[in-house]
Design a binder for these strands. Sequence first.
DNA 1: TATTGTTATACTCTATAACTATA
DNA 2: TATAGTTATAGAGTATAACAATA
Lengths: 163, 163
Amino acid sequence: MAHNENIAFRISDLKQSAPVDLGILEASVGYLLQRALLAVSSGFRLELAVIGLRPVTFSILVAVRQSPGLRQSAIADALGIQRTNLVALIEELCARGWLDRARADGRSYALRLTDPGQKLMDDALAMLDKSEASILEIIEPADRDALIGYLRALAGAGAPASR
Amino acid sequence: MAHNENIAFRISDLKQSAPVDLGILEASVGYLLQRALLAVSSGFRLELAVIGLRPVTFSILVAVRQSPGLRQSAIADALGIQRTNLVALIEELCARGWLDRARADGRSYALRLTDPGQKLMDDALAMLDKSEASILEIIEPADRDALIGYLRALAGAGAPASR
DNA sequence: TATTGTTATACTCTATAACTATA
DNA sequence: TATAGTTATAGAGTATAACAATA
């Protein structure tokens, strides 16, 4: 992080960024993961909101797009969402006309994107690309690859596909 | 578990591990940050709960321990918590006898750890050390250092000290 | 007038228990 | 009996508006 020589800036900075030392938290992977997630996702969240999506609903549509005919439980397992909490989300996406719920079984549904859903996802995926690309303005491509490797290792170790 | 030729077992296995491909999410820094955070923090969260803390309340106590006499707004700024949401948390920590709220000003308080609060934090910080150490069972020390560097860069770029 | 702490409130996210119907 | 989807509900976490007291 660069040091700052501008006096005026530093004075005005005194109030806004109180020089509070968070001690060990500044070197904690857990805490930094949270702060990094917040920083990375806030912009993407705002963009998604413009087209009526949130990260959760977006991730559901990504899964269905990738595997048409998916059942709700499979989505829940894959995304680490409780089946029970998925109900309202699926309902929301169907009500908006982006998701199609067809009986696959007496007790299960096969989910697919509708045509409007496909188009919506074209936009949403472009937003994701943009968001991911903006990360390359902060860290080098090779470092991003390394970061992804570390995150996968951490994600895979803790909770195997759920929470 | 030894290899099991039992048909029934293999069939039940098919259901549990649904081969759902999340597509582009698997290579998204934002999504992986979320999954990694969940994996890393869940164990720590459970440990903290044993002594009556959560990550939020823990981070508040860390800040106060690091800078005795801190005011609520400074904590809010440093941790990225809304002042308004901090009120109940501070109240909770005072009620438990871990935090001392002394008038610093007609309108502000100076926060300090009580003796029980100091002892609680000795335990909590040991838990954090353990949690951070367990990460080294997944990635090499040098890689952990690199990861921390990346996370700091990402955290610092997006939201400058708040959300 | 700006700051500090506060109340009230609302919305999202997450977690659990219990139910229906189908396999 | 186990599974898929569902309902109801409760607790965190987070966000905004509005207020009182003080600087």
